[in-house]
């Protein structure tokens, strides 16, 4: 993914290849989450056995974990800005903080899944269960992939082997991270806040 970073100096649009590539990819991701969200919206009320959404959702907790994820967007912005100013140490610091907050969110999701499972909502319990775990699980996987990218980035920077301009790479991963956060806001609203 970093090929073009070396030679992002001229492009017809003025945006570097990797950034344009990430934008394009995120466009595609919109449809992926669109499909998953539609599936969930279609099936969210369909419970023929096991708990119904309102019986198990813990809105205060999920709001808090959503807040933590949103905070990570802020730290990501700080990381990008530090990278633009070529402050390597600060970039690494904010990337680490972002990754930590992301990991906290995923930890919360693992907790939530375990709790729901204990309360009787398995993956094959009902249509609600299948579609809920699939949708939020896909989001969780996206966050996890994001964390791995952030940590890899920190590792790569430490070894100062990153090819190309750092800021471009940080910005590209930042795009991804913000996208994942925005998707969560949509999921949080549609899945948790709107009653069935």
């Amino acid at each position: 993914m970093t090929d073009a970073a070396v030679h992002g100096h001229e492009s017809s649009t003025g945006i570097s290849n990797i950034k344009l590539g990430m934008w394009t990819f995120l466009g595609s991701e919109c449809l992926l989450f669109g499909g998953l969200i539609s599936t969930y919206m279609l099936y969210r009320g369909r419970v023929t056995g096991g708990p119904r959404p309102a019986q198990i959702f813990d809105i205060p907790f999920t709001s808090v974990s959503s807040f933590v994820l949103l905070m990570s967007s802020l730290t990501m912005v700080l990381a990008v800005s530090a990278a633009h100013k070529s402050e390597d140490k600060k970039t690494n610091l904010w990337l680490t903080v972002t990754a930590l907050l992301g990991a906290t969110f995923v930890g919360g999701q693992v907790y939530e899944f375990t709790a729901f499972y204990n309360e009787g909502l398995g993956f094959s319990t009902s249509l609600f269960g299948s579609s809920f775990y699939t949708l939020t699980g896909f989001h969780g996987v996206h966050v996890t992939v994001g964390i791995i990218m952030l940590m890899a980035l920190v590792g790569i920077f430490k070894r100062s082997e990153v090819p190309g301009k750092k800021a471009e790479v940080v910005e590209m991963i930042g795009l991804y991270w913000h996208f994942v956060d925005i998707v969560w806001i949509i999921i949080f609203t549609l899945v948790y806040l709107i009653p069935v």
Partner: peptide, 22 residues
């Protein structure tokens, strides 16, 4: 090394957190 270390760090935070919350 990178992914192993990343996975370890990630795993520790996620595991610990979900356990505490439970």
């Amino acid at each position: 090394e990178f992914p192993v270390l990343a996975a370890l760090g990630l795993g520790v935070v996620i595991y610990s957190f979900s356990r505490i919350m439970l």
